[in-house]
């Protein structure tokens, strides 16, 4: 999935399921949208469904350093690339 497609889908998830209002790609997720560790785990579940494969525990743990939507997109691109190899 291309980055622009990923961005559209992730923004839709954040707005529809996480009730984000006017999300910016470099907003601090915690400070500006109240996104916490529970939300991070929930989002990973939705990313798995979106990509169509399971993430390993090690892959999920790497997601805990995510701070912005751009970080989420970077993270998914790396995951996609590693699963395509």
């Amino acid at each position: 999935m291309r980055r622009d497609e990923l961005q559209t889908k992730i923004l839709a998830i954040l707005e529809d399921d996480f009730e984000f209002e006017h999300p910016g790609l470099d907003d601090n997720l915690r400070d500006e949208h109240g996104f916490d560790s529970i939300d991070a785990i929930e989002l990973l579940g939705k990313i798995e469904l979106m990509l169509g494969f399971s993430l390993s525990r090690a892959e999920k743990e790497k997601a805990m350093s995510i701070r912005t939507i751009n970080d989420i997109l970077d993270y998914i691109e790396k995951i996609q690339a590693s699963h395509q190899q």
Partner: peptide, 12 residues
């Protein structure tokens, strides 16, 4: 089964 079908917050 391969996905996290039990929501992370279901316990809470």
């Amino acid at each position: 089964e391969e996905f996290s079908s039990i929501g992370a917050v279901d316990y809470l």
